[in-house]
């Protein structure tokens, strides 16, 4: 399946990745070649086959409802790009 440039722009936006205009052609070509390889899947007979999400058949284990965490805000925010008054800062969000 070949992608066109518009597909790539749309995907890059969904993934919030900046792709420079000058790179779009090359990106389109490489993604198309990968998708071409993936296309082999379509020939596989999979009628009645259960999709496999996990390697093991185990089921989810449950955690007891107890508070085990304490406040480490200063430590965690010491590696943050921008904080103020204990809040993480981002450019203004408009709703």
């Amino acid at each position: 399946m070949a992608l066109d440039k518009e597909d790539v722009v749309k995907i890059a936006h969904l993934a919030r990745l900046q792709v420079a205009d000058s790179e779009i052609d090359a990106t389109t070509e490489r993604l198309s070649s990968i998708l071409g390889m993936i296309e082999q899947l379509q020939a596989a007979p999979t009628d009645g086959i259960e999709p496999m999400a996990h390697p093991t058949d185990a089921v989810q284990r449950l955690r007891e409802d107890v508070v085990t965490e304490s406040n480490h805000r200063d430590q965690y925010q010491s590696i943050a790009p921008a904080t103020e008054d204990g809040l993480y800062l981002v450019p203004q969000v408009i709703e």
Partner: peptide, 30 residues
Amino acid sequence: VKRRIMIGTYALSAGYYDAYYLKAQKVRRL
């Protein structure tokens, strides 16, 4: 990394999920 993020984003996006992601999961079972 960007290439793989884009491939993955595409494979999960509306209209392609069944043909790519679900199909791959079935092949995984095979």
